[in-house]
Amino acid sequence: MNTQAITPNAKPELVCPAGTPAALRAAVDSGADAVYCGLANETNARNFAGLNFTPDLLEQGIAYARGRGTKVLLAVNSFATAPRTQLWFDAVDTAARLGVDAVIVADIGVASYAAEHHPQLRLHLSVQAGASSPEAIRYYCSEFNVKRVVLPRILTVTEIAAIHREIPCEIEAFVFGNIGMMSEGRCSLTNYVTGTSTNMDGVCSPANAVHYMDLPDGSKTAGLGDFEIDCFAAGEHAGYPTICKGRYLSPVRKEPYYAFEEPVSLNLSSLLPDLIAAGVTALKIEGRQRSRSYVQAVVSAYRRAVDDIAAGRWHDLSGLVALTEGGKETQGAFQTKKWR
């Protein structure tokens, strides 16, 4: 492992999730350089009932974070569809009025609105935009003055380094948390089953379509809409049912199997020095839907790891496996394209 100290200006920003004001304060207090949040509506990709911020709560959160030197980013990263586009434009206006440090956008129309009406507002390109080539990223930079791209989780570290050399903006990479389908911003599985779109309504597996059933033998089924997504044996860790991580029956297999993805969490702790060397400016932790104790634990651990790397010290994040989905972790495509 590379344990050489990095220069202070190369120390990456730690970008952390906040689904509630309490989680925001937990992230800030645990050492986040920036927190990202969403408004309580369809304008962001974690639109769950009971989650997110009203403009007033966001304003209070910004004040708390600013007072402690932490930036606040607002995710407006679902896709604005006619005739509802005003909701997304209002979210951008709110972000500008409250003075967030950046807005994370995915939709070209929303990016265009922000660039035209709020040219001073810093724009980050969401992972939901699925921009994974230098050409696509340069387009967003030149047309909308995007300052940072959040790369889809389909690239190896080597590919990230190559992209870094060809684009004029910063790179943000996910380092921990849920790892979704290899078609970010283009997945319609939940739409097929529930009629609610991840990309346009901001919610994958809406909770009102989720149902669990405990069976007499101690096992548990998890369903979404009319479909049974998984069945967990007694004592087996159960997950929130998303179609992409369900276990399915197939006539050509003896046992149910994960047809799309396995319920594992991304954990790039051992690749952090390589990511930094590849030119990654910001390290992103996923999990706005997770609890504040999760946020506190993950952010604290990554804060120590980034500081250790910056100082040339060895870092250990092995304890985080307890917070991963199903107790399993992966380096995903960052290590190899053949990760499944």
Binding site: T20, A49, G50, A207
Partner: peptide, 8 residues
């Protein structure tokens, strides 16, 4: 959804 909302 009601349970998740209570959790949040």
């Amino acid at each position: 959804e009601a349970a998740v909302c209570l959790r949040y």
